[in-house]
Amino acid sequence: MRIGVVGVGRAGNALTDALLADEDARGVEYVAEAVAIDTDAGDLNSLDRVDEQRRHLLGAVHTDGEGTAGDAKLAAEIVREERPELQAAVDAIPVGSVDATVVIAALGGGTGAGVAPAVVDLLTQLTGTPVYTVGILPGVAEVGGDGGATGVSDGPKRTDDAVAGDHADRPLSSNAAGAVRALSAASDDLLLADLDVWRASGAPYTPAWDRLDTDLTTRLGSLFAAGETDAPTPERILDASELHNTLGAGGVSAVGSASNAVENGRREGLVGGLLDRVTGADGPAVDEGEAVSVATNTTRKALTHRLSLPCDLTSASRAAVVFHAPPAWLSRRGLERARSLVEEETGVPEIRWGDYPDPTAEEFRVTVLVTGVDRADRLAALRPDEFDA
């Protein structure tokens, strides 16, 4: 799937930067254009991969370029006053040549909660292709001043922007509740990631942000890149239309992933790699039973281990799976068994799936997308009138 990406706020822009790095690492082009929007000049300047011409600072008159201090109402006011600048930012997305546009934001801070809904609104007016949002929910114990848990400071805040002064203890859940409501209504799909999934019990939040960046980027990259690779030829392609159909359930989605190390049998070095290409070597002979076992065990783990939004899987209405591994490990029987496992665990009657043969891979990775979720404890806490626990 070819996508345009719009990062909003510190965390959204960090993930946008990370997606560009993931694209480079895979050698598969799936990001057509990337834009960064923020109210903090320092955060914009810290980006490595988003083109400087695609970085847009909002609200400098109100904030002196130092962020909104967690004030979503101030961010919304900035949007109203600087709508032309926001329009110029989203105009950089080549909406006529992408399959979808993805807006990424942390929903607990002021910039993400206040600006992301306006970005989605503008994009839906510009394009007939879907607009999806990736939203990061703040940790339950995360507080505004330091990003730490229950007052435990762990360095610069990642939710969006530093909160200071009278708002140092501002709960982030109220921002997140409003943003979830607005984005689930405006977006074609809202994929959520709960920061607490990546936080060890009682630990500070900064390491959790780092783990979330790495894991979520890998999961999104696996989904978007799956339909863009054609060498070696996949058994089945999960293309843009199938992803659209999966995400077409609307509402809220979650993504899980897991991996197991496997032997790829590739020779190291320039000479070894050249010999592999000349001889057509595609890896070691793999026992069929072992391939089936790895596929099913990894899939089971992907459904239970660090799902981006812990939820009742049986409340999902649609699902899709990507299998990324060395070609020799992509046993048709193993993939079918794994797909059937997702069907059993979710109750979704038709699971869309695709494989991503990668001779350089050293692991068997499974990425599972579940959409139309309507039973999740975290959502019930944020929006008790709309979601079941």
Rank of each mutant, 00 (worst) to 15 (best):
M1K: 08
R10N: 11
G12N: 01
T16R: 02
L20F: 00
D22L: 02
A25D: 14
Y30Q: 02
V35F: 04
I37C: 03
D40C: 03
D43V: 06
L44N: 03
L44G: 03
V50I: 12
D51W: 05
D51Y: 08
Q53W: 04
L58M: 12
L58N: 04
V61F: 10
V61K: 10
E66S: 12
G67S: 00
T68C: 06
A69S: 09
L74C: 02
E77A: 11
E77G: 00
I78G: 10
I78W: 03
R80C: 12
E81Q: 15
P84M: 01
Q87P: 13
A89C: 04
V90G: 06
S97C: 08
D99M: 13
T101W: 12
V102E: 09
T111G: 12
A116P: 03
V119C: 07
V120H: 06
D121M: 03
D121E: 13
L126Q: 15
G128Y: 14
T129E: 08
L137H: 07
E142M: 11
T150Y: 11
R158G: 07
D160P: 13
H167F: 15
D169C: 13
R170I: 12
P171L: 13
L172I: 11
N175Q: 07
G178P: 00
S187C: 06
L191K: 02
D196V: 13
A208F: 01
W209R: 06
R211H: 09
L212C: 00
D213K: 04
T218V: 15
R219N: 07
L220N: 02
G221Q: 10
T229W: 01
A231E: 15
P234E: 06
R236I: 06
L238E: 02
L238A: 09
A240R: 00
A240T: 02
L243F: 04
G251P: 09
V262D: 06
N264S: 13
N264I: 09
R267G: 13
E268A: 15
G269D: 12
L270S: 13
V271R: 12
G272K: 09
G272Y: 05
G273Y: 05
A281V: 09
E288Q: 05
E290C: 01
V294Y: 10
R300H: 08
R300P: 05
R300E: 14
A302Y: 03
L303V: 00
R306V: 04
L307W: 03
P310N: 04
C311Q: 04
T314L: 14
T314K: 08
A316E: 10
A316Q: 07
P326E: 10
R337Q: 12
A338L: 08
R339D: 04
E343N: 15
T346N: 00
T346K: 08
P349F: 05
P349M: 03
I351M: 00
D355Y: 05
P359Q: 06
T360C: 09
A361W: 11
V366S: 08
T371A: 11
R375T: 13
R378T: 14
A381C: 14
R383M: 08
D385A: 14
D388K: 07
